[in-house]
């Protein structure tokens, strides 16, 4: 058993050859601009930059208000990520039939 040498680097391929590598990738999250807008918004909520200085707030489930809001944003971020992966990452080869 020996290992084949790699071919021409992909950077030297034509745009058509390059695109052909990803023909089976029907959808990918990176290309959906609004997916990243939602991420930006949720990260902006999760980072506690907008509270007044020295703020603690009343307790929510035993936690300071700003911590509870950050945690809520992280739960939404996680749920959003699970949705984005399911909805916007589509590969023809999903079930494991590997190309030669």
């Amino acid at each position: 058993m020996s290992i084949d040498k790699h071919e021409l680097p992909s950077s030297a391929r034509s745009p058509q050859d390059w695109d052909e590598l990803f023909v089976g990738l029907q959808q990918e999250p990176r290309k959906k601009g609004w997916v990243w807008l939602v991420y930006l918004m949720l990260f902006a909520i999760a980072i506690p930059w907008y509270w007044p200085p020295l703020y603690r707030g009343s307790l929510v489930a035993g936690l300071p208000m700003w911590v509870a809001v950050t945690l809520g944003a992280i739960v939404l971020l996680a749920a959003w990520t699970a949705f984005v992966i399911t909805r916007y990452w589509k590969d023809l080869d999903e079930d494991g039939v590997q190309s030669p």
Partner: peptide, 9 residues
Amino acid sequence: LLFAPRLVR
């Protein structure tokens, strides 16, 4: 999410 779909393929 920013690179895995392409890299896995």
